[in-house]
Design a protein around this nucleic acid. Structure first.
Lengths: 338, 338
DNA sequence: GATTCTTGTGCAACCGGTTGTACAATCGCA
DNA sequence: TGCGATTGTACAACCGGTTGCACAAGAATC
């Protein structure tokens, strides 16, 4: 069991065993058309024999690729884990990349220290490409990536961004999602709407609000818009604030399903019934949405598909494809909270 | 802004700029004592001048190290994200590694496909070392790592494991934790105890139960032990099962804080008060524990410290240190649920 | 039978660093 | 002035693959 640490066989050994040169062995294993079937067979047998696996370091240097793709994450790990949105999206990326020979690496960049380390790795060319999961933060790194010419996909719209013709972009149409939610609540006949959104500095939040406004106009006055965090606790507190103001409202648009869950709890505690007294619409179609009581009407964001798309685009860019922009579409999920 | 993709400067260019040979340039930048201060200064200036950063691929091949450490995760990403335990532990690892030049890579191995990919990467020597986060699953990979002689740390005790003198191990003393919880509930005067544990195949669960038993003996009969998942929903359902049986009990030992949260909800719904009627003890000292009503008495598992330890051990092993075993100690956190 | 075209293989260079060893220059000392 | 010891640098090999190009052997053509 305690195997002696035998040193891994190299291509030279395979070549010797097969009685050919290193170059022929390499070509045979890479299935080059210039090598006869006969020889290929012999080389493959020899490789199998000595248990040869090409060394990643040698190969990387020779082909100029590490076959590693960095998934740049600007949130601290704890936040990343508390927001199930990321899980879905990251799953999409890794799912798709696992079909290729590329290995995704989650690279954290929340602290300055981490960002410096990330920068260093970029400069050392440790990765063939980068998928930036939250590009509206940490733009120094984008500058570095641009300068280095590393193929990069931004996951999210960067308003008026200077990298349009350098980086690819994948994003869900948040404004459209906002319109869907607002239309649904309007069709239900609600007139006095409150919005409990995520953080004010988040561009997706701004887009969704724009969508709400496009449909609702004056039915969603400025005073009724609250910015908060993404958690149910945040939704709960925000709704308490609103109730304390004693304004009249019959509909709540929420920035996330978790916010909506907190909002519903607060409404129930205040003796208000959902959806009889107040309609509530969430966002994300997170797992929690279907389990809410009542089950939450929400806007589905195709996160997993977005991950697939990001991975595919980045793979294409490595092969030399031009940067592209890809918009994913939202979908209203009708349930009982409306 | 659209920078032309200038190819990165190599050591040869630095050497030329400084008017020295490549070897001298390399030694100067690595601060070798054999190079004069004078020359070092000149080389450093030249490197700064042309913006030189050593290429990771070339360096990796030369020094025989990739400076990448794989963090092997056997759980699917969704489970990983739903269990805050991992967040804390992974943070500990990355925190510690970020002090070194090593880059941690989260490597998933839940599906067979993923395990094959992981195996391949191991054989290609893509990583200098491995931290296995849940070693009691996917033992084929352990076999491969052993055979390849890759420095490996197992996070968790492997019962009667065959790799004792090959791999290092870091684990929290779950049996001790079980004893702490059981002692606390016994000191409170509780006599009829129920245990709602995690999955039966989890070795940590078995250890904790052993700790409970060592203290409680017949006060925790076999019939009162329930195995379930780690989530609050699981705790909720388990407690409903117990209540349906109409057995007498005055204390509940839970396998996780989330289980405990579900248990408390179920107890409250059944009109039982915590801690007046029933005492509840959790496990993990997860964030949720302090926020429970009543605040949860629980056993703190030093996850972050465990991550630090795992990272340090693996770094030592890369430098050639012998495998070691390190046991972390549990701590009872007294709150109000007892 | 000599010439040209194919086909398959090997030599050697290359990717971008690090490092063992030889050698030249400077120094101290007899 | 001549010797060995010391210091700083360069040459060349190496890590483990890939690949451009030259070349030999055999087939096809004249």
């Amino acid at each position: 069991m305690t195997q002696p640490v035998r040193t891994a066989p190299t291509l030279a050994e395979v070549a010797a065993a097969a009685g050919v040169s290193r170059s022929t062995a390499s070509r045979a294993l890479n299935d080059s058309p210039r090598i006869s079937e006969e020889t290929k067979k012999r080389v493959r047998a020899a490789a199998k024999e000595v248990n040869f696996v090409p060394n990643a370091r040698g190969r990387a240097l020779a082909v100029g690729r590490t076959e590693i793709i960095a998934v740049l994450v600007t949130e601290p790990l704890s936040e990343l884990f508390s927001d199930p949105t990321y899980s879905e999206f990251l799953s999409g990326i890794t799912e798709e990349l696992s079909e290729s020979s590329y290995l995704p690496v989650i690279l954290q960049a929340s602290s300055t220290h981490e960002r410096n380390r990330a920068r260093e790795h970029f400069e050392r060319r440790s990765f063939d490409a980068v998928i930036d999961v939250s590009p509206y933060k940490g733009s120094e790194l984008l500058e570095v990536l641009c300068e280095l010419g590393v193929p990069t996909v931004l996951c999210g719209q960067l308003e008026g961004h200077p990298y349009r013709d350098v980086f690819s972009t994948v994003y869900s149409d948040d404004e459209e999602g906002g319109r869907f939610a607002a239309l649904a609540i309007k069709d239900r006949g609600r007139k006095d709407i409150v919005a409990v959104l995520g953080p004010q500095d988040n561009p997706a939040v701004a887009d969704r609000l724009r969508g709400y406004r496009a449909v609702l106009g004056e039915d969603l006055p400025d005073a009724n818009v609250i910015y908060t965090g993404w958690n149910s606790g945040d939704g709960y507190q925000a709704m308490h604030q609103i109730l304390a103001r004693e304004i009249a409202f019959d509909g709540v648009l929420c920035g996330s399903d978790r916010i909506a869950a907190g909002v519903i709890t607060a409404l129930n505690e205040a003796g208000l019934s959902v959806p009889a007294d107040v309609s509530v619409v969430g966002f994300d179609d997170h797992e929690i949405a279907a389990r809410c009581v009542p089950a939450l009407t929400t806007v589905r964001q195709p996160l997993r598909e977005e991950g697939h798309m990001a991975a595919n685009i980045v793979l294409d860019m490595i092969k030399g494809a031009e940067p592209t922009t890809s918009v994913m579409h939202m979908q209203l999920i009708q349930r009982d909270s409306l």
